[in-house]
């Protein structure tokens, strides 16, 4: 491994002992970072260094490191999942940065995403929104109906699939100036609203999911479009319009 290509970085990282502690930005120097390493590998490197020095490592969320699970978060240099497009933090590589760069690493900020420790936030509010209506009731007690027996037109199937690619990472909330969960809720509402299987519970689904999101403390939607730009899965604002339509018609029923 050539050492000449290694980058020297200044890292400004949010450190917070626990949910109740008052956190602050702390500065770390990290040298010899390979441009080929992923962003999370760079943090692993920093944590090795911190542990060797007898300091507490930086806590951050990660799981699959393949860009499909939605576990990693991080607000990097002012953007959720960093400067890349259509990627999660784990798919961000250090070649996106330059030698000598200062990188700000902060947790996703929202009232409904309280910090647990350092860069780890509690995103269970998303689970509670999902529980409020993000499902279809299917009889699975031995007489399951073949899903393919119900005809679905190609366009609806594609749109439902696009909405269903949401991994629930929360980048939409982190990017939104109002910490609104509209794109997430809209994706979850749309994926069922577009399919015949989702029609039975459609009315209560949109009403209850929207209500839950607001109770969790997510803000209103200002249609800035920041969520769509930052979404690692490219979930379209079209879904928010669909949610607004669904909400309107459900309110009249």
């Amino acid at each position: 491994m050539s050492t000449s290509k290694g980058m020297n970085l200044t890292l400004k990282i949010w450190r917070q002992k626990n949910a109740n502690a008052k956190g602050q930005i702390e500065t770390y120097q990290l040298s010899d970072v390979s441009p080929d390493s992923s962003f999370l590998e760079m943090l692993d490197m920093l944590n090795d260094k911190l542990i060797n020095e007898g300091n507490s490592p930086v806590a951050f969320d990660h799981d699959c490191r393949e860009g499909i699970c939605g576990a990693c978060s991080l607000h990097i240099n002012g953007e959720p999942h960093g400067p890349g497009r259509r990627i999660t933090t784990c798919q961000l590589h250090m070649r996106s940065f330059k030698d000598g760069d200062t990188i700000y690493i902060e947790p996703f900020r929202a009232k409904a995403f309280p910090v647990i420790k350092d860069l780890v936030v509690d995103r269970e509010s998303f689970d509670r929104i999902q529980h409020a209506g993000g499902y279809v009731s299917v009889n699975t007690s031995g007489n399951t109906v073949d899903a393919n027996a119900i005809p679905v037109d190609k366009e609806s199937a594609d749109k439902a699939f696009d909405a269903a690619t949401c991994i629930g990472c929360g980048a939409c909330v982190a990017a939104c100036k109002n910490a609104s969960a509209s794109l997430f809720v809209a994706a979850k509402v749309s994926q069922y609203a577009l399919l015949p299987q989702g029609q039975i519970e459609a009315k209560n689904r949109v009403l209850n999911m929207v209500k839950q999101a607001e109770e969790e403390g997510f803000g209103p939607c200002s249609n800035t479009g920041a969520c769509e730009v930052e979404c690692p899965k490219g979930i379209s604002l079209e879904n928010i319009a669909r949610m607004n339509r669904e909400f309107f018609s459900a309110s009249l029923k």
Partner: peptide, 13 residues
């Protein structure tokens, strides 16, 4: 309501 949803902002945004 917009403001209430993010009590703590980003150091760098």
């Amino acid at each position: 309501a917009n403001r209430k949803a993010r009590p703590q902002g980003y150091a760098y945004n």
